[in-house]
Design a binder for these strands. Structure first.
Lengths: 339, 339
DNA sequence: GGGGACTGAACAATCGTTTTTTCAGGGCTC
DNA sequence: GAGCCCTGAAAAAACGATTGTTCAGTCCCC
């Protein structure tokens, strides 16, 4: 590739002038034709600034790392799209890492920043990564924003309005006439799970419905865990007539469990899931879900990180726009008549 | 972060010695205690070599880009895992891009290499990216390996044994007693689709079964396209009793279509899919699939690219190990008795 | 016509590594 | 004891870009 000095030689100017013209330095005074010669030379030689040279000089890599668990979830795509687009808009590149590969002792994250490969992180932690473990993972002064999660520390974060989302899901069951509503939630140590449960509780409370601990499960979001949770939920007496599953992938597992048990959905049991994704349309029955603005979380997270990089203090933001949206499909219906 | 010159100062040596000790330069002669001092200093200061400095000097970024369409498919996860692990093993980092965002006129790929951000590409093209368009996208001398696809040009490639996989799927239906077997394949312009169709044809031929063009659809791999294909297939007379769907995501759509039509699976119609993913276990009925070694494709692709980077000529490799594996679930059964 | 202000551009330092070249000193040989 | 070789390390150049400083020429004013 062409270098700046080649441009300069071709245009008959010094490197510094070439650089300044190409960067649009406002402090540079130049004759129009000099400018034009540089621009033309750059175009002819198909110039793009060498990344390493620039990064070295500026001590900025203009790259961000997005660290995610469970890349296999289609949900991930929305987040990635948002983050990618926001990053590209600011001429940043995005690196993807998997947080399930980042064990407690690993120094992958430290090194990424230490080597100057990235300027900061977007980190969606897996549910079993404690606040403490998180702090051990990254350098103290690392720029980082937590995605869909929070930490007591002074790190930035961008989260969904989990309370509102879970509440909307629960309210949907309430409005169908359900009075015995269960929850298949995340593990108790996760702040996300706690917020979703809060939304669930809130909706029940407002509907004057009794909240029974026996109808709540907190095993996690994977299809397998949610399936197990659903099975144990079905063994309660009386059992719920509707269940809120705090993650769509879990809901898919839950449907499988119900099918195994021979329980008709939505005839005997309604299922509504937090989060929407294309697969939800193709389950049987197609899942009623609450669509959350995951794409915007990606966008917002990048912006938040970028503003942190330019000196602003870390902030905790909640994405409320667009609002959680109920996507009604076929897995919910009024409860069966009382026997 | 600590720089080399800080290490050198602390150890009381010159920068060059520090660098060579830390890189294990075999040509360096040094007293053991000098070595030790450098090593200790590096450890004390928690040194990691600055990435930009090194990249600038070596003219190598030690980064690769993986460009993929449809990040939303869980299939993607396997490929990514393989590629990531292989890359990390060689101390390369991986950048993820979406090929559906890379339009014909875009110079994203050129720039990535032009700026020296990455040393080469792994590119899984979307089905509608022609050989010509591909060549326009990347610089002539770009190091690139095509993933699961080939091009007539002199680019490297790593592909699955599509023929064997599709053949295995078809043979499964044959062995169940089906004689009227359809195919829902990819678009005709795709080399992948052609190979899978070839495997299908081969299996039919070997079973002495007639191949009817009316039972073949070539609309593409998306759930929607495959659903449309399935519907039109069901309108043929006589209609097939079993269908090979050349992509698991398509098969999910196909099941939805059959459900809409009120056709019992597998009672009236058997469905077997190329590729396996976790969602296949949770459809109704759970999908019988052929699991392909996607993870190994990721590994192999990285290795292939790396060897190309170190001077070897591009190669076309077919991943045959592990061999395609039939994962029998519940979407296939013997054909219904002739009326 | 001499001095100051301004214009338009070159010079030069710097970022952190790697690597070739140079060099000082000590010990050995003859 | 002069020359040589060897050891162990320092010096220096280079990668490509950015940016503060310097500088040569021109114009204008008095």
């Amino acid at each position: 590739m062409a270098t700046l000095s080649q441009i300069a030689r071709l245009a008959g100017v010094s490197v510094s002038v070439a650089s300044r013209v190409l960067n649009g330095d406002p402090k540079l005074r130049t004759r129009p034709d000099t400018r034009d010669r540089v621009l033309k030379a750059a175009k002819d030689l198909n110039y793009t600034a060498n990344y390493a040279g620039r990064a070295l000089r500026l001590a900025r890599s203009k790259a961000l790392a997005l660290i995610i668990p469970a890349v296999s979830s289609p949900l991930f795509a929305d987040l990635l799209s948002g983050a990618t687009e926001a990053a590209e808009a600011q001429e940043y590149t995005l690196l993807i890492g998997r947080s399930d590969r980042i064990t407690a002792g690993s120094d992958t994250l430290r090194r990424l920043v230490g080597e100057g490969r990235v300027d900061g992180f977007l980190l969606q932690r897996s549910d079993d990564l404690s606040d403490q473990a998180l702090e051990n993972l990254v350098a103290n002064d690392a720029r980082i924003v937590l995605v869909t999660s929070r930490t007591p520390g002074r790190r930035g974060s961008v989260i969904l309005d989990d309370v509102a989302g879970a509440r909307l899901a629960t309210e949907h069951l309430v409005s169908l006439g359900h009075t015995r509503i269960g929850l298949i939630g995340g593990v108790p140590s996760s702040d996300i799970a706690r917020r979703r449960e809060q939304g669930y509780a809130l909706a029940l409370h407002e509907a004057n419905l009794r909240r029974r601990e026996a109808w709540v499960r907190r095993l996690g979001y994977s299809p397998e865990m949610a399936a197990a949770a659903m099975e144990s939920l079905m063994a309660t007496d009386p059992r719920p007539t509707g269940v809120v599953v705090a993650n769509v992938n879990g809901a898919i597992g839950a449907l499988t469990a119900l099918r195994r048990l021979g329980i008709d959905v939505p005839g005997e049991m309604s299922v509504v899931a937090y989060h929407d994704e294309w697969v939800a349309e193709h389950t049987w029955p197609p899942l009623t879900t609450v669509k959350m603005p995951y794409y915007q979380v990606g966008v917002q997270a990048v912006q938040s990180l970028l503003s942190q990089l330019s000196g602003s203090p870390p902030q905790d933001v909640v994405v409320r726009d667009p609002a959680p949206l109920l996507v009604q499909r076929m897995s919910t219906a009024p409860p069966p008549p009382r026997p």
